[in-house]
Amino acid sequence: MMDLDDVLTELSIRRAIYRYCRGVDRGDVHMIASAYHEQSDENHGPFQGTGREFAEYLVPLMDGSPTTGGHHVTNILIDRTGDEARVESYFIAFHGQPDGSRAFVTGRYLDRFALRGGEWRIAQREVVIDSDTPPTGTIDLSGYPRGARRDADPSHGWFD
């Protein structure tokens, strides 16, 4: 059974994930970065760096499209142990392309959240692509890990 602290933790984690998605869709570097701890580890396909560095990289890239995109988070599973939590969030994303079309991508954010300074934020993230409709002109998806079933999946063993 969840106690009040567990409920507040889950709400805080969900809000950080939602800030990230809104920041990406609205082109807001500060909002994206607010989902991460300062010394975070962001593994977004070929991009490796901190959450802030990723935000500063991503926003100009997404600005190259005349159409907006949308990131929609669906299932979120949180497994908290003390001041850390493993979090798997499914997403559906529509990425605007330079030609005005949109690419459809589904996948998962595999996050390790940490409570630091009273705030739950992403300490480490890996993005897994489950499916996409190529070509994606703005984002190269070839460097991303791909989802699979059972023990071949990057999240295998997370919630045993």
Rank of each mutant, 00 (worst) to 15 (best):
S12D: 12
G100A: 08
I76K: 01
L4I: 13
R146P: 05
Y57R: 07
R26N: 10
E42R: 05
T50C: 03
T9F: 03
S65G: 07
A33K: 02
S131M: 07
G64T: 10
Q48G: 07
Q97H: 03
V7I: 15
R102M: 09
D151Y: 13
T9K: 03
F54M: 12
G23C: 04
G157V: 07
A33Q: 06
R15T: 14
Q39A: 15
R14L: 12
D153L: 06
G157R: 09
T106D: 04
Y20E: 06
V7A: 10
V87P: 04
L8S: 10
A16M: 06
P145E: 08
G82I: 04
F91E: 03
A33S: 06
H44G: 04
D41C: 07
L58K: 08
M1Y: 11
G143Q: 07
H156C: 11
S89T: 10
A33F: 01
D63R: 15
D160W: 09
L115R: 14
N75A: 14
D111S: 06
V128C: 09
S142V: 03
P98M: 06
I92A: 10
S12V: 01
V127F: 00
F54L: 13
E126H: 07
R116G: 02
P66N: 06
F159T: 02
S89E: 02
D83E: 15
Y57W: 15
